[in-house]
């Protein structure tokens, strides 16, 4: 599922050595979770019709990802490998429940808009993918950085897709109008397709194309 290599735990416990920085920087672009590891695409598309829910989703995913990576990494020597998936699911769903309750308490409108997609962070492949591929074999601090890096890498793509969809679909950004009025007067029309599901697929396809052209990775 994941193509990222599992790095050996750092020998010296330096907090921001070269290796630690690499854990965080690599997933931002070179091994981006969405475009190159093909993880967590579901939510990347569903919540990106405008920027605001996308940002809230990014923050929730980062929190859950860091939390689950640290907890699973702390328990890595105690988890029997046969039932590890269920244990991971239990840890992740507890964290997601916390995030969901917080959102419901403080951002009720937004949590209505995100509806089931907060709950679906549980089955977001990024969280389980990173727990399986990294946290089970590494110490808590590198795992935390890995979670943070992958969460940010996920956020970059999410924000790009959301900006594209909101500008072209609604002519606005964060709810503020950015396409000037005179353009509408000379006949510019919002591309309604961008708000609809096909627009999301096509836009993400194009972003992946651009990203792969720059990073020169070729798939068969």
């Amino acid at each position: 599922m994941s193509t990222a290599t599992v790095a050996a735990p750092a020998k010296k416990a330096s907090l921001f050595g070269k290796k630690e920085q690499k854990f965080m920087k690599d997933p931002l672009w070179d091994t981006n979770p969405i475009t190159l590891q093909v993880l967590g695409i579901c939510s990347a598309l569903a919540v990106t019709s405008t920027l605001k829910p996308a940002l809230v989703m990014c923050i929730s995913v980062i929190v859950v990802l860091c939390g689950s990576n640290v907890i699973i990494s702390l328990m890595r020597n105690m988890i029997p490998s046969k039932i590890r998936i269920i244990i991971m699911l239990a840890v992740v769903s507890t964290l997601v429940t916390l995030v969901d309750q917080l959102l419901k308490a403080y951002m009720f409108e937004l949590s209505k808009e995100l509806s089931v997609f907060v709950g679906l962070i549980i089955t977001n492949c990024i969280v389980l993918g990173r727990a399986e591929a990294f946290a089970l074999a590494n110490k808590p601090w590198p795992s935390f950085l890995d979670g943070l890096g992958n969460g940010l890498g996920y956020s970059i793509i999410l924000v790009l897709v959301a900006i594209g969809r909101e500008i072209f679909g609604n002519g606005s950004l964060m709810g503020f109008r950015v396409i000037p009025q005179f353009l509408y007067e000379i006949g510019y029309v919002n591309a309604g397709l961008m708000i609809l599901p096909p627009g999301a697929f096509i836009l993400l396809g194009l972003i992946i194309w651009i990203q792969k052209t720059f990073s020169k990775t070729v798939e068969d």
Binding site: P198, F201, I202, G205, I208, W209, K212, V218, D220
Partner: peptide, 23 residues
């Protein structure tokens, strides 16, 4: 297919067209 589009990229574009059909 253009090199960068192979694999995931083209699959997403085709899924988009399929979604358009289902719409």
């Amino acid at each position: 297919i253009p090199k960068g589009l192979r694999g995931l990229g083209i699959t997403m574009l085709i899924t988009g067209l399929m979604a358009l059909g289902f719409m």
